[in-house]
């Protein structure tokens, strides 16, 4: 099955260039480490602000890794091999989404309890945050991947991609910091999956030329 093979291949690629696996998670922790330096507040208020910090850090880490979904394969030509394989492009895109989520968001999810320790977050609060992230982060990855597919051809894509992606992340941010809205996040992820699938498929058709 190419679907499975493609996921394994992307995970291996991330694993071989071992920084890839750790990049998003370590970036996330580094952003969080900066926060106590710029806020002259008591540790208690960090606890209040923690889930907000986490969501901003996640958005930035996902943005940082977007170049690896399609761009690197597009630039070195591996995308050509993938595209003329016997497999429908929609499924290729799905495989890319899944492998990118696994290789970036799972390390993030593992890193969050550790970050929680630094900010003295209780276990149940940590659990809520992790549940929300599991519900919301796939949608953010899908949207980011779709926009990076859409902007494959532009020279300064990584800069101007940010301007397109961040407004699309606003709903995730708003619902992400609310503990009871993991179902809304799940819904947002599903909507963004459908839209990202169409957008990515369409863009790959365009850029194959």
């Amino acid at each position: 099955m190419l679907f499975y093979n493609l996921i394994i291949r992307d995970l291996k690629l991330a694993f071989y260039s071992s920084t890839n696996f750790l990049l998003a998670a370590s970036f996330l922790i580094l952003i969080l480490v900066l926060i106590p330096f710029v806020f002259n507040a008591s540790p208690d208020s960090f606890t209040l602000l923690f889930s907000g910090f986490i969501w901003i850090a996640i958005a930035l880490s996902i943005l940082l890794t977007l170049d690896r979904v399609f761009n690197s394969d597009y630039e070195d030509g591996n995308l050509e091999i993938i595209l003329i394989s016997q497999f429908p492009i929609e499924l290729i895109v799905c495989a890319k989404f899944i492998s990118h989520w696994i290789s970036n968001c799972i390390p993030i999810i593992i890193a969050i309890p550790i970050a929680g320790l630094l900010f003295n977050i209780s276990l149940s609060d940590n659990l809520y945050i992790v549940v929300n992230i599991i519900a919301g982060s796939p949608g953010m990855v899908f949207i980011g991947a779709a926009i990076s597919a859409l902007t494959l051809g532009s020279k300064r894509a990584s800069l101007y991609k940010t301007i397109i992606v961040i407004p699309l992340y606003i709903p995730f941010m708003i619902f992400g910091v609310n503990q009871e809205s993991s179902l809304v996040l799940l819904g947002l992820s599903m909507i963004s999956f459908i839209f990202s699938l169409f957008t990515s498929t369409y863009s790959l058709h365009l850029y194959a030329e």
Binding site: T151, G153, S154, K155, R156, A157, Y160, I163, I164, P167
Partner: peptide, 13 residues
Amino acid sequence: FLYAAYIMTWQAI
């Protein structure tokens, strides 16, 4: 920002 993204696309590609 949506307008900005649209306008920038014409220039970036």
